[in-house]
Design a protein around this nucleic acid. Structure first.
Lengths: 337, 337
DNA sequence: CTTGGCACTCGGGAACACAGAGTGCTAGAC
DNA sequence: GTCTAGCACTCTGTGTTCCCGAGTGCCAAG
């Protein structure tokens, strides 16, 4: 049904349309790419491609434009991820290397990716899921309040102020801290709930109410912050592009963590480090946009996802190259720290 | 030069233009507001106002539009800050009351303000400047690396990983921690540099290199993070409005911390809790936008600034009311925690 | 299967007219 | 002196028409 030449025509259409943003006609196609056939032949092929739903024409007697299905075929079979230039690689490396803490890594990453792709970049904070507890700290604020700080091996810090049910002095706080650390140090966050389940019973009776309160806050922190935080950058890059769905919708989605999360996609599939590309209507919300995303994290310990969001008419090979490269470098940085 | 009626005309022009987004003519003006004079009289007044530079006409034979100078006069003399409705007040209170930590307070505040004003809201994180040290924590990661955590009385937490020049064991870390805390606990951040100046000399010689490294990171943290962090929300509200300067420029400015900082204005003036309004060309960058901002913080301990950014054609009384109210509630929340 | 030719179809831009809103000015009324 | 009514004038925005050209689909010939 689709011989090699038809595929070549489709590829040419996608490439031309992406670079010119104008429907591409048979004549221009036959000229610019050396297809070695006449425009008429190209027209026949285009008619076939349109029949199959890979391309469409905005109005009669305009050139053709790829459909979502056309982009899909292009991404899956007709294109290769384009590696970055040496200069770009070095720029990434030096830019990310300057980060001082986890927040900084994430902020730099998202900006870098936005600048590199000239699209909107989205980065999910590393989830607590596979992290391990590095340290638990209890800081007495006054006799009824304690600040609870949880530090993980990924450099993430969570803090909460806990209101205690009754006054408690510093030595008992210190005792609690020691017990907590002895119990949790180095343990995976997902195993924390089991580990602390019987903790109050192992304490002196007078410490139990305070311990129970602190533990409930601890568990709450683990649940609530679970892969929730997402940041984006490069919204200015949206200004030029035109979306079928309004610009407003896109901006709203970007500020809605939940939607953004859904868009980035679940990392639970078999090969989380593979590039995911969702094109136009394949997206749950925001039909008019495409998303290129991938998991990142140190080694096989997959932590979270990052990617870019842009118009369906996007340079997929370049974008995929940038996303993949940035994900690798960030993973490297995180593994080192 | 400007009698009462001319001022009333100016006020009417601003109000009408803000609500309709169309140049307002003499006839409509005389009708809608009961000025009790004929359109011809209004026209004479408008001519005078234009002469003085308060209004202008986009083209001959279109209605008049306020100039920046016109808005300025309106804000300064012709309008009153509009208080919020009871329902709005309650909504603010309940929404902010649910915050669990400082991050959460800031995030909720910026979203609330964006929703309330239907503009872009901008909130600066409370500066470390007037905060005091609540606790310093050193967590050994391995024998050459320590995580350094600084907790302030405003609930802010700063952390850094420090590479030590030489291996150091846990007991020495604990000693350093105790010394640091004894030295700094409860002190204002601005006085930290003096307090730690001679600290290494008071330690055992073998601890000095490690201490010096940690202290340099501590000082660096204080300087770098100094009122740097700013967040915004409500970018989607820009989608409708049209700016003289492109939408792209506004979005770029929003992602540029430094520019945003300049726009929010310095809090160093005499009465930081007063509302600041910068209209159009009064802004350092971004000529086409207006900014309504104010300081917030607990009591006379001014912490940082927040505000909204929108088109010059903005409902100033309502916006100012919302900004003022939110600032007050946030201050209250921060004082309580 | 490919190619050249040809009639057909639209979209988009240029030219044009026109209605309507708004103004400035002048002369008269209070 | 101040306000009002009337009037001529000047625009912009819109709707209409027209035409060019790009691009197509189809057909017949190579």
């Amino acid at each position: 049904m689709l011989d090699d030449r038809k595929l070549a025509v489709l590829r040419a259409i996608v490439e031309d349309y992406v670079s010119t943003n104008e429907p591409v006609g048979s004549k221009a196609l036959a000229e610019r790419h050396n297809l070695k056939v006449s425009p008429a032949t190209v027209r026949n092929d285009m008619a076939a491609l349109e029949e199959e739903g890979y391309i469409t024409q905005p109005h009669t007697s305009a050139g053709r434009v790829p459909t979502d299905k056309g982009y899909r075929l292009f991404v899956d079979r007709l294109s290769q991820v384009k590696p970055l230039s040496g200069a770009e690689r070095r720029a990434i490396e030096t830019f990310l290397a300057g980060a001082v803490d986890l927040d900084d890594v994430v902020t730099r990453t998202v900006r870098l990716l936005a600048q590199l792709t000239r699209q909107v970049a989205v980065v999910q904070y590393p989830t607590l899921n596979r992290s391990t507890v590095r340290h638990v700290e209890l800081v007495p604020l006054n006799d009824r309040r304690v600040m609870f700080v949880l530090i993980t091996n990924t450099g993430r810090v969570e803090q909460r102020v806990v209101e205690l049910p009754e006054a408690i002095d510093d030595t008992r706080i210190a005792h609690l801290r020691a017990v907590l650390n002895a119990c949790l140090d180095g343990c995976g966050l997902s195993s924390v709930p089991e580990l602390v389940a019987d903790l109050p019973e192992r304490l002196a009776p007078e410490d139990r109410p305070a311990a129970a309160t602190i533990l409930s806050v601890l568990l709450e922190t683990l649940v609530e912050r679970h892969d929730e935080k997402i940041v984006f950058a490069g919204a200015a890059n949206l200004a030029g592009a035109d979306f079928t769905t309004g610009l407003r919708d896109v901006l709203e989605a970007l500020e809605e963590q939940v939607v953004l999360m859904r868009l980035l996609g679940e990392t639970t599939n078999d090969t989380p480090s593979a590039l995911t590309v969702r094109i136009g209507s394949e997206n749950p919300y925001l039909r008019g946009t495409s998303i290129v995303a991938t998991g990142y994290g140190s080694g096989d310990n997959q932590l979270a996802r990052l990617g870019v969001l842009g118009p369906t008419r996007m340079d997929y090979p370049v974008t995929m190259g940038a996303v993949r490269a940035v994900a690798r470098y960030v993973s490297q940085i995180l593994a080192a720290s």
